[in-house]
Amino acid sequence: MHGVILYGPPASGKDTITAALHQLDDRYQQFQRLKVGPGRTDGYRMTTEAELTALRASSDVVWENQRYGSVYVVDSPGLRQQLDDAIPVVHLGQVEAIEAVRQAFPDVSWTVVALTCPRDVAEQRIVRRGTGDTWQRLRAWDETAPASTADITIDTSQTTADQAALLIDQAVRAAAP
């Protein structure tokens, strides 16, 4: 089993590269994290606080973080199901989350990709999104630590999404037993 972790700050290209990966090979599918709270719903499995409490009680939360007034969760049942059918592409923004996912699924060959871009490029991308929370996203950008354990690092201001997808696919294939 294979999985991809796209790690990086807001506006580093996680969504765009995931779309390019899926276009390259439809087995690559974004893992939709659970979300409790306001804001964007596209790309998430919306849930309730009660359902999240039940997941916590059953130790099925692999990773959770809070940002933008919401809670975001990588859940083991959801990720396990996707691993059976696809190559999940998990979007993460905290270094500790990488190890949490690896430890929760040690039998999976994880390719970790650190996405970077200059802050001013990220700011331009955030402004174009029009979400109205530019300062919060830039603060999250500033707080995102570099991933020293990444298998590949890609500067998305210098590499197209299609080129990045090819590099990632090559790394996944090279890791195959």
Rank of each mutant, 00 (worst) to 15 (best):
V4T: 12
G13V: 10
I17H: 14
I152S: 04
H22I: 12
L166D: 13
P177S: 02
G3I: 04
A140H: 06
D151W: 01
I168W: 15
G69Y: 00
A150K: 03
R80K: 10
V73G: 06
A114E: 15
P106A: 01
Q170V: 12
S148V: 07
I152D: 01
P106R: 04
G132N: 13
V112T: 15
G132F: 15
L21Q: 07
P38H: 03
Y68S: 00
V113A: 11
Q158F: 07
S12D: 01
V36G: 11
H22W: 14
P38A: 11
G93R: 15
A20D: 14
I98E: 14
A57M: 13
A54I: 07
K14M: 02
S59H: 15
P88S: 09
A165K: 04
R67Q: 01
P106T: 00
Q23N: 14
E51H: 03
L24I: 07
M1A: 07
L115R: 07
R129E: 08
Q81T: 09
R129C: 07
P88A: 09
G78H: 03
R137P: 08
D42V: 13
L21I: 06
T156L: 09
V61H: 08
D142N: 10
P77D: 03
L138M: 13
R102G: 00
Q81Y: 01
M1E: 05
A150H: 03
L6P: 12
D84N: 09
Q94A: 13
T47G: 01
D85Q: 10
A122F: 08
A145V: 08
A114N: 13
R67L: 04
M46W: 07
V112W: 11
W141E: 02
S109K: 07
G130V: 06
D133G: 08
V108N: 04
V121R: 15
A104D: 02
E51R: 10
C117T: 13
R40T: 01
P38W: 04
S109T: 15
A104E: 06
K35I: 01
A122Y: 14
T149D: 09
V127R: 14
D25C: 03
C117E: 05
R56Y: 13
T134D: 11
A171R: 15
D84C: 05
A140D: 02
T134R: 12
W135L: 11
S109M: 06
Q136Y: 05
L21W: 12
T47M: 03
M1Q: 06
A11R: 03
Q163K: 12
L55D: 05
A86F: 02
E96P: 06
A104R: 12
R173L: 14
K14N: 02
P9Y: 05
E143W: 05
Q163M: 12
T134S: 13
D120I: 06
H2P: 08
E99I: 10
D85V: 05
T160G: 09
H91L: 05
P77C: 07
G78I: 00
P177Y: 01
T18V: 08
